[in-house]
Computed example of a mutant assay.
Amino acid sequence: MSLLTLETLSVTRGGRNVFHDISLQLNEGEVIGLIGPNGAGKTTLMRAALGLLPHGGRSSLAELSATDRARSVAWMPQSREIAWPVSVETVVTLGRLPHLGAGQRPGPADRAAIDRAIVGMELSHLRTRPATELSGGEQTRVLIARALAQGTPLLMADEPIAGLDPAHQIATMQTFVALAGQGRSVLVSLHDLGLAVRHCTRLLLLSEGRLVADGPPAEVMTPERIAEVFGISAWYRETEHGPVYQPLEVLR
């Protein structure tokens, strides 16, 4: 089943074409990495797909009502600041709001989703702490947990592992893989090409306003394409521990 369909999606900002004519479909059970150089339009693409920016073309999510959209997709933007000194559990509980009526309190199913998200992001020992007292990396994990608690078929996250230590970067990507195993899907923008190749089932490569590649990591990350788009060389091998991809040198 399609969770997101884009048809000739285009965005122009300040008289500049950020990207144009992007068409794709996201289905169940995928971990899709959105990659590309700085300024390629990754954040803009995700925001336009959500209907948060004016755009040309069609996005199936943008056509939904706000309530239906919040039940279809959880969104984690780059901005990570938690402004109010409420507990970690309270922040994660906010993820259940799309499923509650006005004035309705979380029920057993909601509590279970909240607990799973807190445990999954290794936040149990911080459950009652004010979120504003946490480190930047811990706050990021809290916001990922909020998105997980939302329990939507699709999760869209803009650089969710930025600022996390290596163990939590890997654990977060493994969480996304587990979601795909449950039939849900994740669209995640990444700058770490090694983690993208290792954990994503599919990569979308943006460059100079267009989608230059869409497919399995091994097909997208060819030496010629990476040299052209990123201006780097890289080492890639399928090993007994899974795929290993390591950028090596700047070529230009």
Rank of each mutant, 00 (worst) to 15 (best):
79 S>K: 13
72 S>F: 03
75 W>Y: 14
53 L>I: 09
55 H>S: 14
69 R>C: 01
71 R>H: 05
60 S>V: 10
58 R>W: 13
81 E>T: 15
57 G>S: 08
61 L>C: 12
70 A>M: 00
64 L>P: 03
74 A>Y: 08
74 A>R: 01
75 W>D: 04
54 P>W: 06
75 W>S: 02
83 A>S: 13
66 A>N: 13
59 S>T: 03
54 P>T: 03
83 A>F: 00
82 I>A: 00
67 T>S: 11
57 G>M: 11
82 I>L: 06
73 V>D: 10
60 S>A: 14
52 L>I: 15
80 R>Q: 09
67 T>V: 12
71 R>T: 02
76 M>Q: 14
68 D>V: 05
70 A>F: 02
55 H>N: 09
58 R>T: 15
75 W>F: 12
64 L>R: 07
74 A>V: 06
78 Q>L: 01
56 G>I: 06
64 L>K: 08
72 S>V: 03
67 T>Q: 12
57 G>Y: 08
57 G>R: 05
78 Q>H: 08
54 P>K: 08
76 M>E: 10
80 R>H: 13
68 D>S: 12
73 V>A: 14
54 P>N: 05
66 A>H: 11
66 A>P: 05
71 R>N: 01
70 A>H: 01
69 R>G: 04
63 E>P: 03
67 T>W: 10
62 A>V: 13
55 H>G: 11
61 L>I: 02
66 A>V: 10
65 S>V: 13
74 A>G: 06
82 I>N: 01
59 S>C: 02
71 R>P: 02
73 V>L: 05
54 P>A: 09
77 P>Q: 00
75 W>K: 13
57 G>F: 04
79 S>Y: 10
72 S>K: 03
60 S>T: 15
79 S>W: 07
71 R>C: 10
67 T>P: 03
70 A>P: 08
61 L>T: 07
82 I>K: 01
73 V>R: 03
74 A>W: 02
60 S>M: 13
56 G>T: 09
78 Q>I: 00
68 D>K: 12
52 L>W: 12
58 R>Q: 15
54 P>R: 09
52 L>H: 14
71 R>V: 01
83 A>V: 05
54 P>G: 09
77 P>R: 00
80 R>T: 12
63 E>Y: 02
